[in-house]
Simulated scan of single mutants.
Amino acid sequence: MPYDNHKDLPESVQNALPPEAQSIYLAAFNNAWDEYKDADDRRGNQSREEVSHKVAWSAVKQKYHKNDNDMWVKSS
């Protein structure tokens, strides 16, 4: 289930990430959703959705990190 906009993202993502990071998450999720549609392309027996969320969080973590206040901020 690809996402069309930020409002479609899970509430946990909307509440945790700033808008730019949400855009990264959305784009990475949608790309992974297409890339891993075939079960043979995924490791183990993870679902397409599970893999797509993992890819999306990984993409966010390339440009953002949690600060001491447990808030996601852009990495320098």
Rank of each mutant, 00 (worst) to 15 (best):
residue 31 N to Q: 15
residue 21 A to C: 13
residue 29 F to W: 08
residue 6 H to A: 11
residue 41 D to C: 11
residue 54 K to A: 05
residue 50 E to M: 05
residue 74 K to V: 01
residue 72 W to P: 02
residue 27 A to W: 04
residue 44 G to V: 02
residue 53 H to V: 06
residue 10 P to V: 04
residue 61 K to F: 02
residue 70 D to Y: 10
residue 73 V to D: 07
residue 60 V to Q: 01
residue 35 E to G: 00
residue 67 N to S: 11
residue 45 N to P: 00
residue 11 E to H: 14
residue 69 N to C: 12
residue 53 H to C: 06
residue 66 K to S: 06
residue 11 E to F: 11
residue 5 N to H: 13
residue 28 A to M: 02
residue 28 A to I: 03
residue 3 Y to I: 01
residue 69 N to I: 00
residue 13 V to D: 01
residue 2 P to D: 01
residue 12 S to G: 11
residue 38 D to L: 08
residue 3 Y to T: 02
residue 36 Y to V: 03
residue 2 P to G: 01
residue 52 S to D: 04
residue 62 Q to K: 14
residue 36 Y to A: 06
residue 59 A to D: 07
residue 34 D to Y: 12
residue 55 V to H: 01
residue 22 Q to N: 07
residue 26 L to H: 03
residue 36 Y to N: 03
residue 14 Q to D: 07
residue 64 Y to V: 01
residue 22 Q to T: 03
residue 49 E to Q: 15
residue 19 P to R: 07
residue 24 I to L: 02
residue 59 A to V: 05
residue 46 Q to N: 13
residue 43 R to Q: 11
residue 60 V to P: 11
residue 24 I to H: 03
residue 42 R to P: 12
residue 72 W to Y: 15
residue 9 L to T: 02
residue 42 R to L: 04
residue 36 Y to D: 03
residue 66 K to V: 09
residue 76 S to R: 09
residue 63 K to G: 08
residue 20 E to F: 12
residue 3 Y to K: 01
residue 60 V to F: 01
residue 31 N to G: 07
residue 19 P to M: 03
residue 31 N to R: 11
residue 32 A to C: 08
residue 8 D to P: 00
residue 53 H to S: 09
residue 48 R to F: 10
residue 41 D to S: 15
residue 58 S to L: 10
residue 28 A to Q: 04
residue 38 D to C: 00
residue 71 M to H: 13
residue 61 K to M: 00
residue 57 W to K: 05
residue 73 V to L: 05
residue 46 Q to C: 09
residue 49 E to V: 10
residue 44 G to N: 08
residue 8 D to K: 14
residue 45 N to E: 14
residue 50 E to N: 14
residue 49 E to K: 12
residue 51 V to A: 06
residue 59 A to M: 08
residue 37 K to T: 09
residue 67 N to W: 12
residue 49 E to H: 11
residue 11 E to L: 11
residue 1 M to G: 12
residue 65 H to K: 13
residue 67 N to M: 10
residue 65 H to I: 06
residue 47 S to C: 10
residue 52 S to F: 08
residue 36 Y to G: 03
residue 14 Q to T: 08
residue 4 D to K: 14
residue 66 K to H: 04
residue 45 N to I: 10
residue 4 D to G: 10
residue 6 H to E: 11
residue 15 N to T: 03
residue 2 P to S: 13
